[in-house]
Every structure is written in C-alpha cells, then in structure tokens.
Write a protein that binds this DNA or RNA. Structure first.
Length: 644
DNA sequence: TTAGGGTTAG
C-alpha cells in the first residue's frame, strides 16, 4: 500500500497533462490566455463565496491550475458542502491532478473539515507520492477526530518504511498518544520521546512542549517537569503547559511557584489568558483568595476580562475561596455568557449549600435560552444533594432527557448521593439496580459515602465488594468501610480491612489542612513537628477544648479506627489537622478577620462540632472548605445545618 | 501547506 517514490527532480509537476492539441506554440499561448482568464474568474468567485458558479466554470475549463483547485477545495470546506467537494474532487482527478501531493493534502484537510474521515483516508491511500505533508495532513485529521490509534499505527509504518518524521509529525504523533481515553498509549509516547531525542529535536520548542503536555495528561508530573527543565528555549506556551500540568495534577502550590518564577525569569514574555486560567485554577484549589485577587487585578489591567474561559475560572476561584458574592459579581459584570459560565455559578452556589439559589440560577439559565450541558445537571443535582432538596433533585433528574441529554453514570452517582445523604438508602440502592449501564466506581462510591454517613454496614459491604474490584488501589474506599465498622464497633471488620490495605501496599491519605495568611499558604497535619508555633498551637487546642466543654461541647470519637479507651480516643481527635488549623488561624489572623481553612478530606464530626463551639466561644467567623463543600461557622452554627 | 498550553463537575 505504501510505496516509496523518489521525488521528481523537476519541481514542476510532471503529472499535469498538457493536451496534444495545445502543443503548438501559438495554440499554447492562446490557451494560456483563456486559461488565465477563466482561472482568475474561478478564483475570484471562490474568494467571494460563489462556489456553485465557480464549479460551473471549472467544468468547462480546459487548463485549470493547481491554485484554482486549492481555492475551490478551501471554498468547499468553508461552505461545508460535501456534494460540491465531490464535484471538485472528481473534476480535479479528470484533469490529471490525482497524483498532485499538494492538492492531496488540501483534500485531506477538506474532508476532515467536512467530517468525512473515510474520504480523507481514501485520498491518503490513493496518492502514490506521499510527501511528508500528505502524511502530516492525514495524521492531523485522524488526531483531531479522535483516532489516535490509527495515527500511531501509521507512524510505526512510516518508520518501518524509512520515511523520516519532521517536527510536525512528532507533535501529531505525541498528541495521538493522549486522544484515546479507552487505552493508555503512554509507552508509545515514551517511544516517540526517544525518537525525538535521537533525531535532534530536543531543542525544538513546539515538539518539547507537546511532550510536556503528553506527560501532563498522563499525570506523569515528574517526567513533564524533567522535559520542561531540559528545554534550552522556553516560551510562554511551554511555561503555561507546565503550570497547567501542576494545576491539573493536584499540585497547585507548585503551579503558583512556577508562575512566580515565570514572572521573574521570563523577561519580556507576558502570561496570556491561557496562563491565567491555570493560575486561577491553582488559586481555587488552594483557596488562595489574596493571590486570586492579585490575579484578578492583572486580568483587568491586561484587558483579559472579555475572555470567557478566564472569566469562568475567575468566578470559580472566588466561589471556591468562599466568596460566593464576589463570584456572583464577576458573573453580573460579564458581557457574554456561555453554558460554562452558568455552570460555574450553579456549582458555586452548590458547594456553599445554597441549593435553592442554584436551582433559581438554573431556571434563569434555561429561560435565557442557554442550553444546559451534562455538567449543568451534575452541578445542579450536586447542589440539591448538599441542601437536601431531594424532591427537586428527583424532578430534575427525570427532566434531563427533555434537554436532549442522556443521563450518564455521573448523573446516577449524583442521584445516589442525593438519596443516600438523605438517608433514603433503599431508594439509592434501587436507583443502582434500575440502571441500564454498568454502575461503575462513581456510583458505588456515592453509595459507600452515604453508608458512612448513616452507618449502614450491610449496604456498605455490598458497595465495597464492587468498589474494591473496580478500584483496587483507591485507599479511600477501604478507609470508608473501616470507618463504618469502627462506628459500629465491629473491630474484627476494621482489622480485616486494615489487613487488605496492607496487603495491597496502600496507605490511608492523611488529613491535611491549609490556611492563607498574608498571601502565604501554611499547611498543617496532625503529625506536624516543623511548624515553629506547633507547641503553642497544641496548647491552645487543649485549652479551648476544655473551655468549650463548659458550653456543651462533647468530643465525638467514633471516627477513631482503634479500639481504645475513651480518653485515648479523645486525645487522637484533638490532634486532627482541622483543629490545629483553627488554632493556627486564631493565633495568626488579625482580630475580626474570618479564618479560612481548606481540608483535603471530608470534615469529621468532632472537628465540625468543635469548630461550631469555637466560633461561638471566640466570636469568630470560621470558614472551612472540605473535599465536598463549604462550612461557614458563625455564632455556634454551621451553614450546612449539620447536613453534609 | 501543517504545530504546542486553557473554562464548568466528580
């Protein structure tokens, strides 16, 4: 199928047949004159978008030029007309251009634009002289239509028959390694990485940036960082790719550090809207409000506030930093809004436990004629779930199809969460058994989470049986089941799960809190010995816990995974990172300032109760974002109304 | 002739 052809010495295409009757000199010049005129007319018709007329003319044109066909092909792609595309393609073949590799690349692009990979493939297969442009054009078409596997197959073929790749081929091939979600092509990516180095492209900024991104998409942060650090030339895109890599892979702190480094080292190079989106994501993940505000200022100064992705990320940053009013302000000021902007606002209200507001925004969205997306329903169902709006959530779930959306596993997981949280576990289990698709880990995970809240051992065992199979390395699931056994005082079960964890070499993710004080982020863990104030912090926690006992605080120790004396259990929960963070905040925040804490796991019941009492006792507002939502503690109450 | 980084959820 693939033949290697020596390229023609004469760059003039030899495959342009000149009809015999044009061979005589005077006929040739005459023919050239008419040709020029007709070609020019066709070309100008194409430019004016009058494709039909152009096609009429080309059928009578005896000497069409390559450029004329190029414009015709582009015109077909622009006008999205496959029928015209076929006419032009046939006419071009009839006039002997079927072996023109330049036009073949244009045809491949055109068929891709028109959504017909099959015709693009046909052009690719039929052209004998496959220049690197032809290969690259087909790779591009395949990559962009999600057919990474075929790119990789052809790339291998190309290597076997000895056609050298160029810088474009490498970028397409690397991108092909991440387009298919079904299977991992990381190993192929690594192989191409080796080819890139072997052929001396280690200094090529496009190729290397694509490599950074390829590793980023697989979560191979160290590899991405290694490639990035080894780049002799970096530009704003490479910096942004690496910042995005950190932000997307749970390393927001490093993302911000790298951004600061970029601002210091990059000289004239300015961050773009793309850079700012990743930086905002990092601020949101860290709940770094002050940093985020600085970024907001920069966005306004640089006039990036009309770019939709920037504004959605900004809105989300405020919402995830606990400032839902500022998020709403951003939304109000937006000149244009798309589905994502609305989704961002809905989920913002959702994580603040403001379910009715989220529902209202959803209604507004629909009445404004904005189409909801699958994510809209995940957000609005999530909002119902956090607020206990079970009936509203059920109605919404049943309406999904009306919006032309097929309910996905994510939507079912939301429903299970909604019902399960509300202690309607049987209904939640029924939702699962009624599912046509395989429930998958998200659905079972939701059920297990609800079993944890309501301590339902039997259902938890059923859910974890599936979960342990589907996610054998997710330690969180094992810990949830152990928690449930512990609460039910089934110490044999706790032991068994711990052994399972050990046998699989898994470790419980330890609790960690962080807090921003004067634009600096401080993290606290229960085993923290490095914090210079740690003794003061512990002392304050002990004192406070004694004081608040007088106003009704009773330690809740059921989360402790050990069968110990009650005093020992109380000592353990007193060391939870969230309590340390509260004390750290009380020591270091200015008087009257809200203490803002972020936690990597779900807030435990004792810490929740402790913080409520502390907010009353110290007359402080304390805001805690846990893995799922916000808790605003004020005057002894929490905004979640103990429903979380 | 062709190319690299980004928005919302979980």
């Amino acid at each position: 199928m693939f033949q290697i052809q020596t390229p023609p010495r004469n760059p003039q295409p030899t495959y342009l047949p000149i009809p015999l009757h044009h061979r005589r000199r005077h006929r040739i010049s005459a023919a050239l004159t008419t040709t020029t005129n007709n070609n020019q007319t066709i070309q100008s018709l194409c430019k004016k978008g009058q494709l039909k007329q152009a096609i009429q003319l080309i059928t009578h044109e005896q000497n069409p030029t390559q450029h004329t066909y190029e414009l015709l092909i582009q015109s077909c792609a622009r006008q999205k007309s496959l029928i015209d595309a076929f006419k032009v393609h046939k006419n071009l073949n009839d006039n002997g251009f079927d072996e023109d590799p330049f036009l073949a690349t244009k045809l491949i692009d055109m068929y891709f634009e028109l959504g017909s990979i099959e015709h693009a493939r046909q052009v690719f297969e039929e052209i004998t002289q496959k220049t690197i442009y032809v290969w690259n054009a087909f790779f591009r078409a395949l990559s962009l239509s999600g057919n990474g596997e075929e790119v990789l197959r052809l790339y291998r073929k190309m290597n076997e028959i000895g056609i050298p790749s160029d810088r474009f081929t490498y970028t397409y091939a690397l991108k092909a390694c991440v387009v298919s979600e079904a299977s991992s092509f990381l190993w192929r990516g690594k192989e191409i990485h080796a080819h890139v180095l072997r052929h001396g492209y280690e200094g090529h900024v496009h190729v290397m940036t694509t490599l950074v991104d390829m590793y980023a998409k697989y979560g191979y942060v160290e590899n991405a960082d290694f490639v990035f650090s080894s780049m002799p030339v970096k530009n704003v895109v490479s910096w942004s790719a690496m910042i995005a890599c950190f932000a997307k892979n749970g390393r927001p702190f490093q993302a911000l550090q790298l951004f600061q480094k970029m601002m210091l080292e990059s000289g004239e190079m300015l961050p773009t809207s793309v850079t700012m989106v990743s930086v905002l994501q990092a601020c949101a993940a860290l709940a770094a409000l002050e940093q985020g505000k600085l970024i907001h200022g920069y966005i306004l100064r640089k006039g990036l506030d009309s770019i939709l992705p920037v504004m959605s990320a900004l809105l989300t940053m405020y919402a995830r930093c606990g400032e839902i009013d500022l998020a709403q302000n951003v939304f109000n000021k937006m000149e244009k809004r798309d589905t994502v902007s609305w989704n961002s606002l809905i989920s913002g209200y959702g994580i603040h436990g403001l379910g009715s507001e989220a529902l209202q925004i959803f209604q507004e969205m629909v009445s404004n004629g904005v189409s909801p997306s699958p994510i809209t329903f995940v957000s609005v169902l999530g909002a119902c779930s956090h607020s206990g709006l079970v009936d509203e959530g059920k109605l919404l779930f049943n309406s999904i199809k009306q919006y032309g959306i097929h309910p996905s596993v994510e939507h079912y997981a939301c429903m299970v969460d909604l019902l399960g949280r509300a202690n309607r576990l049987d209904e939640a289990a029924k939702v699962i058994s009624d599912m046509r698709d395989e429930p998958g880990p998200k659905v079972w995970g939701s059920l297990l989470g609800s079993c944890r809240i309501h301590c339902n051992v039997e259902l938890a065992e059923r859910a974890s049986k599936w979960l342990f199979e589907l996610e054998p390395t997710n330690a969180g699931n094992f810990v949830l089941l152990a928690d449930i056994y512990a609460e039910a005082k089934m110490w044999g079960g706790v032991k068994r799960v711990k052994k399972l964890l050990e046998a699989r070499g898994l470790q419980k993710v330890s609790g960690c809190c962080w807090i921003e004080i004067k634009r600096k982020i401080y993290s606290l863990t229960s085993v923290d010995e490095l914090n210079p104030q740690i003794e003061q912090i512990h002392a304050l926690v002990v004192t406070l816990s004694k004081e608040i006992r007088d106003i009704g605080y009773v330690p809740e120790t059921k989360a402790v995974l050990y069968d110990l004396e009650i005093e020992e259990k109380e000592r353990i929960v007193l060391g939870h990172s969230e309590k340390l963070a509260v004390a750290f905040g009380l020591i270091n925040c200015s008087k009257g300032e809200t203490i803002r804490i972020t936690k990597n796991l779900r807030l435990c019941e004792d810490c929740h109760s402790f913080t409520k009492f502390i907010s009353k006792f110290t007359n402080r507002e304390i805001m805690v974002r846990d893995i799922n939502r916000f808790h605003h503690f004020r005057d002894g109450e929490c905004s979640c109304r103990d429903y979380w």
